[in-house]
Simulated assay, not measured.
Amino acid sequence: MVTIISGIALLLITLAAFSLFSLKMPKGQAAMSGMANAAVATFLVEAIMSYIAGDLFGISFFKDVGSIAGGMGGVAAAALVPMGMGASPVLSMCAGVAVGGYGILPGFIAGYVVGLIGPVIEKKLPEGLDVIVGALAVASVARAIAAFVNPGVTMVLSIIGKTITEATLTSPIIMGFLLGGIIKMICTSPLSSMALTAMLGLTGLPMGIAAVACFGGSFTNGTIFKRLHFGNNGNVIAVMLEPLTQADIVTTHPIPIYGSNFFGGGIAGVGAAMLGIVNNAPGTASPIPGMLAPFAFNAPGKVVMALAIAAVGGGIAGFIGSIVFKKFDEGAKSVRI
């Protein structure tokens, strides 16, 4: 029980820090969006190309593509984060290539600093010198920051990731429900479950639970949106494929959506835990990647069964949630009247 509590507590602390950064830091949401894009460009490509097309189907070319992409997490983060924050593509790429060899979080931190100082450098330097001097300055700053923060962030995130893994292996069913529910809530929020799981470096059963939970929770979202009339049919499809596209509706109706998502993701997580679904591609906690990545590391039949349980469980959670919160909303309206 102590292991479970410590694992969930560390996850919630990380989530709180993640949320505060996104909401309070200058251009925090843009930076986190760049981090999620970096996870797609590296870990998702690695999962599909290397582990499925390469290992499963034996195509060596795709194996090479995925392996190379998977090792570029730091480079992608250091380039895409400042680019998303408004820095020029040239300076963003200078930051990216300079942090080669470092992980995605050191790259993210370096990229965030470059995202803040890059536009200032471009503005202060005379035209003609801004690219040359800016490129040299940005590359040096990015590399120095990545080298400085790497030992500390690697140690802290390793401790958190190992604690969550130990808790999951100790009590897989309980952690399947709690971890699946929490990750699906994050997946649906304006934050990024892909970025969070990438930073933590989750692999194995915890990442399998997170991936399947994000897939199963899509059916929770679809059911909630449809039955409570949150938008039109296009919104229903969009929230199932990628919840971040419907952030305006989600933030307008947080209680029914997040409340139902916790149980939908939790049920999906329990199914994944019972079947022992592993996923060694961190950062694939999103509906479509979460559906595909587990096929690279598990027997196809077992994955199909886990996805079926997740879809049914997610749909049931959404159906029950729509009934509960519809009555709650009607009761609240009658009290106001």
Rank of each mutant, 00 (worst) to 15 (best):
V75R: 06
F148W: 09
A144G: 08
G103Q: 14
M83Y: 03
V304D: 10
V303E: 00
K63H: 10
A198S: 15
D64T: 15
Y51I: 14
T170Y: 01
L80K: 02
P254N: 07
S6V: 15
I68Q: 06
S6E: 15
A247R: 13
A47G: 06
A146E: 09
S334Q: 15
V236D: 05
S286W: 01
V156K: 01
S88Q: 01
N221M: 13
I174F: 00
S60R: 11
I316D: 07
V250P: 02
P206Q: 04
I4Y: 03
L307N: 11
V2M: 12
M32R: 14
A311Y: 07
M85R: 02
A47I: 01
L275Q: 01
V114Q: 08
A41Q: 10
M93D: 12
I255M: 08
A110I: 13
G161L: 01
A69E: 03
S50C: 15
A195Q: 06
G118M: 02
A47W: 00
A311K: 11
S33V: 13
F43S: 08
V90H: 14
G71N: 03
F219M: 02
I173T: 12
G318Y: 00
A147E: 13
A16G: 06
E330C: 08
A299I: 14
A47E: 01
L20V: 11
V120P: 05
F108H: 03
F18P: 03
K333P: 09
A317C: 11
L116E: 02
M25E: 11
E127G: 12
G259R: 00
L11I: 09
L23R: 07
V239S: 12
T42E: 04
I309S: 11
F177D: 06
N280G: 09
A69K: 06
F219W: 00
L307D: 11
G217D: 04
G264T: 10
L178M: 14
D329H: 04
A285M: 03
A195P: 00
N298I: 07
L105V: 15
F297G: 14
A30H: 14
K124E: 09
A306K: 01
F262I: 01
S334P: 05
V40W: 08
C94Y: 13
A79S: 14
A311E: 11
F108W: 02
A77F: 06
A281Q: 02
G107P: 07
F57C: 10
Y112A: 05
A41G: 08
G217H: 03
F61R: 10
N261G: 15
G271R: 05
I257Q: 00
A135H: 03
K123R: 14
G107Q: 06
P256W: 00
G231P: 06
G266T: 08
T188Y: 13
D248E: 09
P106N: 08
G201D: 04
H229I: 12
D130M: 05
I159H: 01
T154N: 15
M194N: 07
R143C: 09
G103W: 12
T223P: 00
